[in-house]
Design a protein around this nucleic acid. Structure first.
Length: 440
DNA sequence: TCCTCTATCACATTTGAATAGC
DNA sequence: AGCTATTCAAATGTGATAGAGG
């Protein structure tokens, strides 16, 4: 059986023509997403952002807020956020810096946060910034509130998905575009480790106003922290082994992750981490402009070597990423989607077999699109709300169904895709792993 | 047993939405 | 209708403590 694990590494291959946007594809303008408050994010990122996770769920701070443009005003879109691991390691805070503390724990149930305004027309998303303020993070693997479940002492970053769909029930096989912002990566913690991060949070989060030190509220100088945190970095960086070209470092110059990065290079990835490695490749695709996010599906895109470190450090203004290629907005209907999949057939670059929607409700399918646009992949979602799978037939995955950490094996795939999810209403959507395989 | 690391809890403070009163 | 005051749930980091593991 074809698995995502089998599939993903093939992203480096040019997409088969049969999987690209066909003549019936709905071409949409260049979708652009920019991160609000990038300077604040950058400030945190330079220190090594930490996000508290609690059992009842904790909001992020800074919280994710983006601006969108390039959407079709009258077309409806769904916005989603999920969290993906930065790597396959667990970390510990040791003497003012993060260190690798071992392999990552098994992935918790991967959940996707649905923006409460979804679905909404493009004009709605574009008229003002889109805030994910109410997104909460939890370490409770049994969470019933739909919060995003993370492991403490692990690194993640949010991933934003835009799906053109009239409603949640018609998402199936829709193409979604994914955006990530390097500066939004963070370490999930149950208690702050870096006191500088704590101070930053107190200084910037209005709810923590009561903890502010009256004296230095206004004179906080982040760069001071940065220097203290990374003073040894300049000397270490030249000694870092050269990464492969697909993994140019992002704006790591001020990153507190120096030590573990070095160690990470020396440390063999846990077995079965090729999927993660793929992710790392994605993570490190340099952006042409400062702090530009990179598209998840641009795995195979040849990065611009000149745009990695320097440009990031010279960041000015918002982070942004503009879709440079037309994207298939939607797949007209289920049948055509299926036929498209069938057309794909065995391909060295695509799945040898994609499960039919009937067989695997809730599965995230990835289909390559945009022939002639190297490395650009569009994502096709198979919505759990399929005609073949009435809502009432979905059942939630239990904790025992956690995928193993680095083994997106056929077993896991099969296991996951065979589990349905109860969706009694739209609001419950976000409780369930819309993208069953989004965490690899 | 001791130590370290991580998780959990109660607490005081603050924000902001909802509501009532004018 | 519009403004202000009040109420209260939610959000926040702190610090003490518990628990697991070596």
């Amino acid at each position: 059986m074809q698995t995502i694990r089998d599939f993903k590494p093939n992203f480096n291959c040019p997409p088969p023509s049969s999987m690209t946007a066909g003549p019936d594809a709905y071409l949409q303008g260049n979708i652009r997403m920019t991160l609000e408050d990038p300077e604040l994010w950058k400030t945190f990122h330079e220190l090594g952002t930490e996000m508290i996770i609690t059992k009842p769920g904790r909001r992020m701070f800074p919280h994710c807020k983006v601006n969108l443009s390039g959407l079709i005003p009258c077309a409806k879109y769904i916005l989603l956020v999920d969290m993906v691991p930065e790597d396959g390691f667990r970390y510990k805070w040791n003497k003012e810096k993060w260190e690798v503390a071992g392999k990552a724990e098994p992935q918790p149930p991967c959940r996707t946060y649905l923006h409460p305004d979804s679905p909404a027309p493009g004009s709605h998303w574009m008229k003002q910034s889109v805030s994910f303020l109410k997104l909460k993070l939890t370490n409770n693997t049994l969470d019933q509130h739909g919060h995003i479940i993370l492991h403490s002492m692990h690194r993640y970053h949010p991933r934003f998905h835009i799906v053109q769909a009239d409603d949640l029930f018609s998402v199936r096989w829709s193409v979604f575009q994914t955006f990530t912002f390097p500066e939004t990566s963070f370490t999930a913690v149950t208690a702050y480790q870096n006191t500088k991060i704590t101070k930053l949070k107190i200084d910037h989060n209005p709810f923590a106003k009561g903890f502010r030190d009256e004296v230095d509220v206004m004179i906080y100088v982040p760069s001071d922290f940065c220097q203290s945190s990374y003073e040894s970095y300049d000397g270490e960086e030249p000694e870092l082994p050269k990464r492969k070209e697909a993994e140019p470092i992002k704006e790591e110059r001020y990153s507190p992750w120096t030590a573990e990065r070095e160690q990470r290079v020396r440390t063999d990835s846990p077995p079965g981490t090729d999927a993660r490695d793929m992710y790392n490749a994605e993570q490190l695709v340099p952006a042409p402009a400062s702090y530009q996010p990179y598209r998840f599906h641009e795995y195979g895109k040849s990065p611009s070597p000149s745009s990695s470190i320097g440009s990031c450090n010279s960041s000015v203004g918002r982070s942004s990423f503009e879709s440079r290629v037309p994207d298939v907005a939607t797949v007209p209907d289920h049948d055509s989607s299926k036929s498209r999949l069938h057309e794909t057939g065995p391909s060295p670059c695509g799945p040898q077999h994609l499960p039919s929607p009937q067989d695997y409700p809730g599965v995230l399918n990835m289909t390559m699109a945009q022939a002639g646009k190297p490395g650009v992949i569009s994502h096709h979602i198979y919505s759990p709300y399929s005609a073949e799978q009435p809502l009432g037939q979905w059942s939630g995955p239990g904790p025992a169904q956690y995928p193993p950490p680095h083994h997106l094996t056929a077993d896991y795939t099969t296991q996951a895709v065979h589990h349905g999810y109860h969706h009694s209403n739209v609001a419950e959507w976000s409780q369930y792993p819309l993208f069953s395989y989004s965490c690899w």
